[in-house]
């Protein structure tokens, strides 16, 4: 998995409440059993005025020249709620988004981000709103090891993250590989668990 350590880039404001994963990647844009190429369908219903012909909607924030290549999104509360589709994260990744800053996230989406090298960064709602409403594009530096976001006036905004998520992102860990190292412990548990709950086994 791609590591996430430190990132400096423009943050595009998409400060709306409850942006769901259907909006991030509409189901009809999931055309193949694949993670590849989903960036084109990202936010398709908002990003294109004519979805079928990929005619861009000039009003959509990511179509503004200053935000087209933004690697950071400034999002509203409960971002990524709804469907579990990991395609939402794969679409962001394919497009080039490496970090989403929001007051809160949908739980499954947040987990999917961490497992794909995207940092879901939680800041208090007033902080995110202030950045999103700034008059000029905000160049931010996100430092995961230091757990801080540096904003253009030099202020450092601290953030918290679960230690396991931090480690996975910093190290780019293969989660299955890490757990498989515990296979002896899992087997031990399984033996006693089966003795206590035999009806759960076929």
């Amino acid at each position: 998995m791609q590591k996430f350590t430190r990132l400096t880039g423009i943050a595009a404001p998409l400060f709306r409440a409850n942006v769901d994963t259907d909006a991030i990647i509409p189901s009809r844009e999931m055309k193949k059993v694949s993670k590849e190429g989903l960036g084109e369908g990202m936010f398709a219903d908002w990003r294109y005025s004519d979805v079928a012909n990929r005619v861009e909607n000039p009003d959509f924030i990511l179509n503004w020249p200053c935000f087209r290549k933004a690697p950071i999104l400034l999002a509203g509360p409960n971002f990524g709620c709804g469907s579990s589709r990991e395609h939402a994260v794969w679409a962001l990744q394919d497009y080039g988004i490496r970090c989403v800053i929001a007051p809160s996230f949908g739980a499954i989406f947040q987990g999917n981000c961490v497992r794909n090298g995207i940092l879901p960064l939680v800041l208090p709602e007033p902080s995110v709103a202030a950045l999103a409403q700034a008059a000029t594009p905000q160049l931010l530096t996100v430092d995961l090891a230091a757990q801080s976001v540096r904003v253009p006036d030099g202020t450092e905004l601290p953030f918290t993250i679960a230690p396991a998520d931090k480690e996975m992102l910093l190290e780019g860990l293969d989660a299955i590989g890490v757990t498989l190292k515990r296979l002896p412990a899992i087997r031990d548990f399984e033996g006693s668990y089966r003795a206590r709950n035999p009806w759960l086994f076929f």
Binding site: R85, I108, N112, N116, A164, I176, T179, L180, E190
Partner: peptide, 20 residues
């Protein structure tokens, strides 16, 4: 509970999940 596809692969391969 609902999970992503990568976590589902983890559950299939290990019969466990890492959960907060």
């Amino acid at each position: 509970w609902g999970i992503g596809s990568t976590e589902a692969a983890h559950a299939l391969a290990t019969q466990t999940l890492v959960v907060k």
